[in-house]
Simulated scan of single mutants.
Amino acid sequence: MILTDQELNQLCQGTPPLVEPFDPSLINPASLDIRIGTSGLNEQEEGEPMPLDLTGYDPNRPYILEPQTWLLVASLEVFHIPEFAAGEVRLKSSRAREGFDLSLALWLDPGWQGSHLTMALRNTTRFRRLGIYPGLKIAQVILHRLSNLPQRSYAQTGRYNFDRRVQGSKG
């Protein structure tokens, strides 16, 4: 069962909150919009991705994602997924229409907490440069209520809890 706006609002105002910072205008009928934060990792031609600080970029002066390029960006929001729910992350349709794409590896297990979401963002266009900046609505989280509590939640098994910056693969 997918959680509705009323349930999402209640979770966002709980302890711990579903997301922080919480902005009620981000709640949709059955999802919660999420925004780009300030940290990223930029793919390099050789070697490891380079840290990217998006602080200072805004709608009038965005960071430019060139055609066919890829980077990791952190969400502005820090998440606390309750143990009775799991979440999926979907690109906002407006961003898809502009030429953005998100990795399909965006699943939030029960108990995933205290972390910014790391998203793999790609400019799929052939010719158009796309701009990003902190606060840009990029995706939405859809929460599903589980039929039962898991035997072991991500709080016990996860490797990405309490990450406060964008994270590359931990293996």
Rank of each mutant, 00 (worst) to 15 (best):
Q68D: 07
C12N: 10
L76E: 13
E88T: 11
Q44F: 05
L108Q: 11
V19T: 09
L149N: 12
I36F: 03
F84E: 13
L102D: 08
A74G: 15
D23P: 03
D109I: 10
A120M: 08
N161L: 08
G40V: 08
L146P: 09
E48Q: 10
P134L: 12
G131Q: 01
L143A: 01
L76M: 15
T69N: 09
H116Q: 13
L65R: 00
N60Q: 15
I138K: 00
A30P: 01
G56H: 03
S103L: 11
R145A: 15
K92W: 00
T38Q: 13
V19E: 00
Q68I: 03
A155T: 12
L11H: 08
Y154S: 08
L3Y: 02
V78A: 11
E77K: 06
V89D: 06
V73W: 03
T118F: 02
S153E: 04
A120K: 05
Q151V: 12
A30Q: 10
F84T: 14
P82Y: 09
L3R: 04
T69K: 13
L8Q: 04
T69M: 12
V73I: 15
L91R: 03
L3T: 00
W112V: 11
M1K: 04
L71P: 02
G158K: 03
H116E: 07
A86W: 09
Q167A: 14
T55F: 09
Q113M: 11
F22M: 06
L136M: 15
E83L: 08
G171N: 13
P17E: 00
E45G: 01
P150L: 13
V78G: 02
Q140M: 03
E20N: 07
S103I: 10
P51A: 14
G99T: 03
K137Q: 14
A30V: 09
S103M: 10
G131C: 02
I64R: 11
L143G: 01
D53R: 03
R164E: 13
E20T: 14
L136P: 06
P24Y: 08
W107N: 07
Q167I: 14
R35C: 15
A139E: 08
S31H: 04
A139K: 05
Q167R: 14
R97G: 02
Y133I: 07
Q140A: 11
Q10C: 06
L106A: 12
P24N: 07
M119S: 02
A139Q: 07
A120S: 11
P16K: 04
D101W: 09
V78E: 15
H144K: 11
R90C: 04
I132Q: 00
L41I: 03
G111N: 06
A120N: 05
I132T: 00
L26Q: 02
G87K: 09
I27R: 01
E48N: 06
Y57C: 03
I27C: 02
L102W: 11
G135D: 05
F84S: 14
F84C: 06
E20V: 08
Q113A: 14
S147N: 08
E45P: 00
I34G: 05
Y133H: 14
A139Y: 03
R159T: 13
P134A: 11
F22Y: 15
R129K: 15
L102K: 06
P59L: 08
L136Y: 06
W107V: 15
P24H: 05
